[in-house]
C-alpha cells in the first residue's frame, strides 16, 4: 500500500510555539488513527516562520525560492493538510494568509484539510469559523468538521461539563482527518518537469477546438 502524505503547516512565530505544538499533536493523532487502519503515512511539518522572507519575496517577484517552492509542492501534493495559525487581530495571521495566497487556487480542491488556531484567550475561537473556514471553502478543500482552537488555558486544563478538553478535541479532529485520508488513493508520484514531455501536449486544447469554441454562442 502506498504511503499517504500528511503535511502540517504551522504559522507560529515563537520558539517553541504553541501553534507548532498544536500542529504536532494533531499530526500525531491523525498518524495514529491511520496506522490503526493499516495506512502508512509520512508526516511533514512546514514552518512558515522559516519561509517568511521567501514568502514576501515571492509576493514581489512572482516566483518562489527553491525552499518555498518545495513547501508549496508539499502542500499541493499532500493527501491531507493540517493548517494551524495563531489568531492575530481577530483573524489568521498575515503570514498564514500570505502563504495560502501563493497556493494555486485549484491545488487544494477536494483535499482533506484540518483547521486549527491558537490564541491567548478562548474569546477568539470563532476565528476558525469566521476566517479560516471561508478561506478554505474558497479553495474548495474538504474541510474536516471539527476545527480545533487552543487558548493558553487549554494547555493546562481538562474539559468541563459543556466542552471536551483539548486532548479529546485533538483526537476527534485527527480521527476525522484520518477517515477522509484513508478513503483516498495516494496520488502517483509527481513526474519531474524534465520527464513530462508527453503530458505537455495533453494539457493543451487543440487549436481547432479553441477556434471552434469561439463560434459556439
Amino acid at each position: 500500500m502506498q504511503t499517504l502524505k500528511l503535511v502540517a503547516v504551522s504559522a507560529g512565530l515563537s520558539r517553541p510555539s504553541s501553534t507548532r505544538l498544536l500542529a504536532d499533536r494533531l499530526a500525531k493523532a491523525t498518524e495514529e488513527r491511520l496506522t490503526e487502519r493499516g495506512r502508512p503515512v509520512e508526516v511533514q511539518v512546514v514552518e512558515l516562520r522559516d519561509l517568511a522572507v521567501d514568502i514576501a519575496k515571492h509576493l514581489v517577484s512572482g516566483f518562489p525560492s527553491p525552499a518555498l517552492g518545495s513547501a508549496i509542492d508539499a502542500v499541493t501534493r499532500a493527501d491531507g493538510v493540517i493548517a494551524v495559525t495563531p489568531v492575530f487581530t481577530a483573524s489568521y495571521s498575515g503570514l498564514f494568509k500570505s502563504f495560502f495566497d501563493l497556493i494555486d487556487p485549484d491545488a487544494l480542491s477536494g483535499s482533506p484539510v484540518l483547521l486549527a488556531a491558537t490564541g491567548g484567550t478562548a474569546r477568539h475561537s470563532l476565528a476558525l469559523d469566521h476566517a479560516l473556514r471561508p478561506l478554505f471553502a474558497y479553495l474548495r478543500a474538504l474541510i474536516v468538521p471539527t476545527a480545533v482552537y487552543a487558548a493558553s488555558e487549554d494547555w493546562g486544563s481538562g474539559g468541563d461539563e459543556w466542552t471536551a478538553g483539548l486532548p479529546s478535541r485533538i483526537d476527534r479532529a485527527g480521527t476525522e482527518l484520518a477517515d477522509l485520508m484513508a478513503g483516498r488513493q495516494p496520488e502517483a508520484p509527481a513526474q519531474d518537469v524534465d520527464e513530462d514531455v508527453d503530458t505537455d501536449a495533453d494539457e493543451v486544447v487543440p487549436f481547432e477546438r479553441q477556434l471552434a469554441d469561439l463560434r459556439l454562442d
Binding site: 517577484s61 516566483f63 518537469v193 514531455v197 505537455d200
Partner: peptide, 20 residues
C-alpha cells in the same frame, strides 16, 4: 523575470505542436 522552467516547458510544447 521567472525561472527557466517556465520557458523550457512552453518552448518544448511549442516545438512539439509545430511539428504536429
Amino acid at each position: 523575470f521567472w525561472p527557466k522552467q517556465h520557458t523550457e516547458k512552453m518552448v518544448r510544447l511549442y516545438r512539439q505542436r509545430y511539428a504536429h
